[in-house]
Amino acid sequence: MPEYILKTDNLIKRYGDFAALRGINVAIEEGTIVGLLGPNGAGKTTFIRIVNNILEPTDGQVFFYDEPLTRKHNKLIGYLPEERGLYPKISVGNQIVYFGMLKGLSRTEAKQKARQWLEKLNALDWWNKNVGDLSKGMQQKVQFVVSVVHQPRLLILDEPFTGFDPVNLQLIKGLIREINNNGTTIILSTHRMEQVEDLCSHIIFINKGKVLQQGEIKEVKRKWARPLVRLRVDKLFEDSDINVVKSTLGEDGSWEVFVEWNHSQVPELVETLINKGIKIYEVEPVEPSLEDIFVNLVKAKDEETVDSVGI
């Protein structure tokens, strides 16, 4: 029986007449990295703010380790907000220590942990520098340290990769994996699906204040992915049984065509096309991306909530 670090029960949040969350039910298993996906305005930030006790839900409840969520749980939660913010005229060291203390660390502990983290990021010599004097990338690193300095059980990262160059992006991804290996559950909210595929084991799709789908990525893919086959052919073709999703003309005059087709029946596809007199240069079964699944889900289930496949 898996242990759930966070569960919500029919979470509703209204701002006046506008409903930002319309009955969110999620269950997040301890130790996982969960991708929280959804377009702008889907309700991700509202959901995250409620879990951080910044907002109160209009209705419904949040459970942290099966206890109703209260402020006492704040010290077990780390948060990297999408809109980054630190005091520009306060030194890096003081700032990390301050936020660490607000999350329940003693001054000595906070100092010690802050030093450890800065050392890990090769940034210990920033200790006395004002945050305002650092580059944007450096500030992002400090902000990351602020969110993890108190060793949270649950870490919520809202768009954590913006502002990082490729080298630092790898560094931060490595750190996220390391934190997760040490037992911290991570909710990763981002638009960058490729990062979710790379890091997350689970996903929650949200749209218009409702959960469209949640579960293990491979399960979700298995259930919702339309299998695609990529072909390179000499000319375009039409067939009532073959659904062409996308086609592009290559520089050498050949066409790259994506068709919706079951991966186990690729020989039949090839045979049909040969019979039509089509020359085939390349055939490749393709894994659909999370983005494809998400677009399909939104189209198919625009107004209705899909049952959870269970995490």
């Binding site: 951080n52 948060y79 907000p81 809109e83 630190l86």
Partner: peptide, 16 residues
């Protein structure tokens, strides 16, 4: 300034 610099969100995730 705290509102503009978005420090507020971080502060409110730690206290009322």
């Amino acid at each position: 300034e705290e509102k503009q610099r978005r420090v507020v969100e971080l502060l409110l995730s730690s206290m009322s």
